[in-house]
């Protein structure tokens, strides 16, 4: 069978589908001062998956949407905020301000961060000492 670390080199999704892969990628991103990108990516996925049916679901969603907005998008010097297009940021800000909470409200921002990782940090990770030493 193919060892997991070889699968990690196939695509970003293969890497993010494996706990050890995520751990190593996070260590690398932290070194590069962009660990927040990965946390944001997972936070967006988690937000989309939140159940509406659970009690207080809507209140929890609103709280979470605000927390994600505050931590990753509001601070314009943050690594995530700097990678997201101004129009996308305005859209999210507007959703939060109008209390218009939609499961897909972070999708565009997540895509922008994912593209950034696919084109930039992920290829760098595959060439990094941290990955090569692991293999």
């Amino acid at each position: 069978p193919t060892p997991p670390y070889l699968k990690w080199a196939e695509s970003l999704h293969s890497l993010l589908d494996d706990q050890d892969g995520i751990h190593l990628f996070r260590t690398f991103l932290k070194q590069e001062d962009c660990g927040d990108m990965l946390d944001f990516w997972f936070a967006c996925s988690g937000f989309r998956k939140l159940e509406t049916s659970e009690s207080q679901g809507e209140e929890k969603k609103l709280k979470l949407a605000k927390a994600i907005y505050k931590k990753y998008i509001l601070d314009s010097n943050g690594i995530v905020s700097r990678q997201i297009k101004p129009a996308t940021k305005s859209f999210i800000k507007d959703c939060v301000a109008r209390l218009h909470i939609d499961p897909a409200m972070f999708d565009q921002a997540q895509t922008e961060i994912q593209t950034m990782m696919e084109e930039n940090t992920y290829p760098l990770f595959l060439k990094s000492d941290i990955y090569l030493e692991y293999t």
């Binding site: 993010l16 706990q19 997972f42 988690g46 505050k70």
Partner: peptide
């Protein structure tokens, strides 16, 4: 503030793949 962080952490963990 703590509970906001907890909520965020819980959300991030929920999106991670489960241990195989």
């Amino acid at each position: 503030i703590d509970s906001e962080d907890d909520l965020l952490q819980e959300c991030i963990s929920s999106a991670m793949p489960k241990k195989k």
